[in-house]
Design a protein around this nucleic acid. Sequence first.
DNA 1: CTGAAAGCGCTTACAG
DNA 2: CTGAAAGCGCTTACAG
Lengths: 354, 354
Amino acid sequence: MEPATNPRHDGTRPARVTAAMVAARAGVSPATVSLVTSGKTAGRVSAENIAKVDRAVNELGYVVDSLGSSLARGRSNIVILVAPDVSNPFFARVIDGVREEIGAGFQLLLSVTEAGRTPTLEVVRNLLSLRPAGLLVDAPSADFLAGLPAAGPMVLLDTAGVESAMPSVNLDVAGGAVMLADHLADLGHTTVAYLDGTTGTDTFRVRREAFCRHARERGIDVVAQAETTIDVAAAADAFDTAWPQWRRMGVTAVVCSTDTHAYGVLQEARVARLSVPGELAVTGFDDLPYSAASSPALTTVRLQAAELGHAAGRQLLRLLAGEDLGATADGHSLMLASELVVRGSTAGSPHGRP
Amino acid sequence: MEPATNPRHDGTRPARVTAAMVAARAGVSPATVSLVTSGKTAGRVSAENIAKVDRAVNELGYVVDSLGSSLARGRSNIVILVAPDVSNPFFARVIDGVREEIGAGFQLLLSVTEAGRTPTLEVVRNLLSLRPAGLLVDAPSADFLAGLPAAGPMVLLDTAGVESAMPSVNLDVAGGAVMLADHLADLGHTTVAYLDGTTGTDTFRVRREAFCRHARERGIDVVAQAETTIDVAAAADAFDTAWPQWRRMGVTAVVCSTDTHAYGVLQEARVARLSVPGELAVTGFDDLPYSAASSPALTTVRLQAAELGHAAGRQLLRLLAGEDLGATADGHSLMLASELVVRGSTAGSPHGRP
DNA sequence: CTGAAAGCGCTTACAG
DNA sequence: CTGAAAGCGCTTACAG
């Protein structure tokens, strides 16, 4: 028998199946239905009633209403990831990491801020009114953090360059930049150019500043800079335009703020028949999958994207479990180590492709 | 004076500011507070009380609780966009389009399906339990639509190749493919290769089938195919590998399923010193910004990304307003026209770059 | 114009 | 093991 539904012809939809309807059909109370659907039956509901409820749930296609449930419990089961830029493959891996970590018990939803802008307080305030189980905020600005209300469980990711007492997970891009500078210095480079990324996020500033500072200490002059969006083609264009001058300045290496930028440089270098690394060394940040397969393969600072998501999810789960992260061994702020991956674009056979 | 808050030292957070607290401070009833915060004061609340409530709201930093409000009204103000793949610039424009259209009255949240998979029914069922004001589903599969519960307002986007009675907005990729085949036939091409995209979505199948069918009618042989993810580097690799054989087969044009693929082909063509379009014509789909600036500029089928988002948002808004889309002039299903943008990669100066 | 009351759909002490 | 009842925070007829 079908449950009673509102007629469709008048434009109304079938009535929502409620716990009360399930209870009526199963011949139990709504309280029992709740106990069964939330799995809290141990020592509280008889096997017989569990079976009756399960049957009714299936027959009616009942799904616990998230609104009612969340209101009663005081919080929902959604985890909101606030991010300025989701349209790149690096971030897709972060998302996957979070999803894997938080599991099916929580629902991951993304709030994408407008055109790469850093998240605003107003957006977060509205998000908080949804009573998310937790918030994950990627690349927050200092202003943003300063005005943040003392909200529920929240973990920051990618907070490069901003101070905060909130639990956070970061990529040690500065450490990676230092290794990169050392590597280039060891190879004897003294004159390099930097190809930066244009986004509102601080991580790029930190990469550049850390590299420039340490490069100088190691006797490397960063004689020129250019910047483009994270786009192979845009980077290729920028390099194409800048190269004649850079060459005149004696540039022997281009340090790129992302692998994507480096692909553009590599592409133009091939077109220009520049030998990499013989005439020009090229480096990136990220270690995207293709970086091991490019021609030549790309020397890059490996950033742990999926692990960034995993760690943030894990922190959040611990916060939800009521743990005081500040008191634990690994503290409330994690820094994921970067790794320098040396490949042919800086250290391969010097003249032309292998 | 600060509102009473729970102490922080015991781990609890400051008490949520409720409408009741605002009412108490303003000296009015919660009903009046609700009327004011929801802007339904016309002829119902005195100017004096409006002012009192506004003041109390500001002093306490009150934000209407979305859970309570949504439960009482029967639906929330969130619009959920379910999408298999957000990590590309095309989709970023779709998102922007939706956001602009639905405005500040609704909160746009994304549900990203696992690693490019098509959305599952289970995911949507959970999403529906949040009582979204509406759902926007990108690239649904036929299976998915078949099992879809008669849920609230929902608009499908990018449903290429699947039948459905639901309101939907589509890009006429097939029409674009036909124009492309005509264009290449008019230029005298008779032997072409097709570089497809590997994703779970049907739009790529539709592009390819429409092109191949119409090409055949126009006397063009599609003699070879390759496929890669939507990635410049991967496409470049695939072309690099396939080209010797394709050249032997007499291929004079490579039709790419996205501009991104075409960038990869263009890149390798330059490395190989192939003249485009003299020795090889190259085409794409999308008309991403860079396509006008590449060397040579790319002939492509322009797809209206932002307009896809706008139109879907507009349909949803009308659904929410109770309109019966099936009865209106433009029907419940929109098809956004594609446009063939002819540039240098097929029709420029025949030998080498201009 | 105003407020008391019912109700949205659930969960959770509580009494039995 | 079970169910009646209170409560989560709002909104909306309804009576005044």
